[in-house]
């Protein structure tokens, strides 16, 4: 048995010994300790004893601890988050329903998809039926003219003129005048310019034509509102005539 007080009276390798035992000594510490060991019986004896202890504790761990399964840790988590608590606290049928949906996301997703499809189908049916009823109404009732043009007041000689077509008429020749519009009372309505004539009901082809004309003839917007709308060529001629008249008037003054 070793004298406990003997060791480390003359040497101070306690910490290095511990580090050396567990293989954590630095290279310098290791070299210093190994050069010290042959000269110090106490350190050599202690190292041997500690090494045996290390093995013994390792045995204890290997034989008694390692075979043990890690215990299943049961953390008392709250049943649900505070947000969920507030919505589910009442225990109503709604909360029960929410719980079912939250438990089966696949099922709820399928149900939502079916609902969207059903609603979409109903909307489509409603649109189709409304279109059919409009068509039937169009055959029985006279069409109401929303924006009467001065073209109706102009004599037949001024024809052909560009006029809006009803929305449900097929996109045909744009120069055909709407026969219904001639039946409306003419002079009492205020005159409108060509831009006002382009109602949302104007067919796309006619609108495109008008746009093209607007780009080609930017002066159209300045034409006299009192003048009836004419064909494209006539409008251009008409503008030039009016300008000539103006210049004449200025000249005479």
């Amino acid at each position: 048995m070793m004298n406990e007080n003997h060791h480390h009276k003359n040497c101070d390798f306690s910490e290095t010994l511990a580090a050396y035992l567990y293989g954590e000594a630095t290279r310098i510490e290791k070299a210093a300790f190994e050069s010290h060991l042959p000269d110090c019986a106490a350190c050599s004896e202690e190292l041997a004893a500690f090494s045996g202890l290390h093995v013994a504790i390792g045995d204890w761990k290997t034989k008694e601890f390692d075979p043990l399964a890690t215990p299943a840790i049961e953390i008392p988590y709250p049943v649900s988050s505070p947000v969920a608590d507030s919505s589910l606290s009442k225990g109503s049928w709604l909360s029960a329903l929410r719980q079912i949906f939250s438990l089966s996301p696949a099922w709820s997703l399928t149900a939502a998809t079916l609902a969207v499809l059903l609603i979409g189908g109903l909307i489509a049916l409603a649109l189709i039926s409304s279109n059919k009823s409009n068509e039937l109404a169009g055959t029985n009732k006279p069409q109401i003219k929303t924006t009467p043009t001065p073209a109706e007041t102009a004599p037949k000689a001024a024809e052909p003129a560009v006029s809006p077509k009803p929305a449900d008429t097929p996109t045909g020749p744009t120069t055909v005048r709407n026969p219904v519009s001639s039946e409306t009372p003419p002079a009492t309505n205020p005159p409108v310019n060509s831009r006002q004539v382009r109602t949302p009901n104007t067919p796309r082809a006619a609108r495109n034509e008008n746009n093209g004309r607007k780009n080609a003839e930017p002066n159209n917007r300045y034409k006299n509102e009192q003048l009836p709308p004419k064909a494209v060529d006539e409008e251009e001629e008409d503008d030039s005539l009016r300008l000539a008249e103006l210049f004449d008037e200025i000249g005479t003054e």
Partner: peptide, 23 residues
């Protein structure tokens, strides 16, 4: 390190007292 060393030292003493030769 010092505590580990002291722990090993005390363990050795305790085991020697129980006449158990660890080494």
């Amino acid at each position: 390190k010092s505590r580990v060393y002291t722990a090993l030292k005390q363990l050795r003493m305790k085991l020697e007292r129980t006449s158990l030769e660890v080494v």
